[in-house]
Amino acid sequence: MSIDASLWQPSAKIRNLRLRAEVLKQVRDFFAECNVLEVQTPVLGRAGSTDAYLSSMQSRCSGGGLSEPLDLYLQTSPEFHMKRLLAAGSGAIWQLATSFRNGEVSERHNPEFAMLEWYQPGYDLNDLMAEVQALISEVLEVDRFSCQSYRSLFRQHLEVDPFTSELSQLQRLSHDKTGITAEELDRDACCDLLMSSCIEPLLGRDEITFVIDYPASQAALAKVKTDDEGDQVAARFECYYRGIELANGYHELTDAAEQAQRFAEDNRQRKVLGLPEVTVDQYLVAALDSGIPECAGVALGFDRLLMLKAGADRLSDVISFSIDRA
């Protein structure tokens, strides 16, 4: 295959790489002041993310000192290893972790990216949102914040209820708003689509917006609770600025049996969708079983934070070499 030699150049201006270094220092100082320990965990693991909508890249380690080849997943986030540290008594921890998500390429996605992830034992979601707010306001110099529930956003912008409206109504709305063939979309798919096409672009215009109380079906690794209207919601938040999804936080699931059940459920869903099953992290289940402190954790897209800081339009403007040049 021929290559375009002019692509030897970095995709980011050196000025933005300097900014990147400054922000990283800011982040490091922030966590040092909060007494959060910086850690490094492996990028490769025997188990991968079972989430049906995440695709892990894989790698094989073989030869040398190995009697048998080892098939390893590249992490989609450092969550599993970090939770094992928490279970081992690490206390509050953070890291900037290179993470990989197969196929995710767009102006706001690079398949290899930097995830800023941290965990705070003893925190609930409100404590953690306050900390996210403190970090973001320091870096982006914004001091206006708001918080809205997933349900209220749908009511306000689309006049439907993601929990109680008829599926047919959500399908019709999905079709009208985006032109998608909606008959086969389930409730989650309709909500994902309406959220990303109609609501997200309006979020955090000139303030940081937290979205809370996601449907329980979108809980991933968060605890589930009952909201004021009697519906099951995930103890999870997302954070948006200028229409860009910046961070995703959980009041973390600590129940080993339920964790094992969710892994199995994910793999069942994968089978239905015709996707390969993913090796479940038995080490994580064992760690939860041994006892992990109640905690809240969040993953923040460091490249996206940089993009907003630099006023850039594309992630590639703040990554030294985006995937097309790597």
């Binding site: 989430d51 909508y53 995710e104 390429v105 767009s106 996605h109 985006t178 032109g179 998608i180 989650d188 798919a189 994902d192 689509l193 959220m195 990303s196 096409s197 997200e200 979108q218 991933a220 997302e238 999804e245 995703n248 993953a299 897209g301």
Partner: peptide
Amino acid sequence: YVKPGKGQAFNRVKLRNLNTGRVWERT
């Protein structure tokens, strides 16, 4: 390519209808 951190991915596509010349947006 439109992909939330958690949830399904979609593709937002602009196409020119070659019969009418009109531009369509479809997801």
